[in-house]
Design a protein around this nucleic acid. Structure first.
Length: 117
DNA sequence: TGTATGACCCTGA
DNA sequence: CTCAGGGCCATAC
């Protein structure tokens, strides 16, 4: 198994650990997965993630608290719908990361820790 | 081998 | 608030 593949799996594991009703950012996932600033790799990982993993990919948004798919796209609509159904509220097209981004602040790590290896 | 393209992010103006 | 510029890096061609 390639090292690349293991990086992807680490990312998938972090994404899978995002609690329902919460969101995380690409950059945040990258940091928690030990990938430094490679936020783009997280986007790539989600893009190539096997559907069979059933990852909660909709809980991953960009640093602005917005959905990264183009406004008006089917993907954007789907992600928006799924988040609303989990109780995540939007304001002017953006999510308040201070409230829903439990995976971001260090303080939140005390309330929710990613699943250990 | 080089250029273009992203489900990105941060800083500074 | 927006915008540009730089960083980041796997993939596609």
């Amino acid at each position: 198994m390639s090292a690349e593949r293991q990086l992807l799996e680490r990312i998938w594991r972090e994404v899978a650990a995002i609690p329902r009703g919460c969101v995380a950012t690409y950059g945040g996932i990258a940091r928690r997965a030990g990938l430094g600033r490679r936020a783009r790799l997280v986007g790539y990982a989600l893009k190539v993630a096997p559907a069979a993993l059933r990852l909660p990919w909709h809980r991953v948004v960009n640093a602005r608290g917005a959905i990264s798919f183009p406004d008006g796209s089917a993907q954007h609509a789907l992600q928006h719908r799924r988040l609303l159904r989990e109780g995540v509220r939007f304001r002017a097209g953006r999510i308040d990361l201070g409230i829903y981004g439990s995976a971001e602040a260090d303080l939140d790590a005390l309330l929710w820790r990613p699943r250990p290896p």
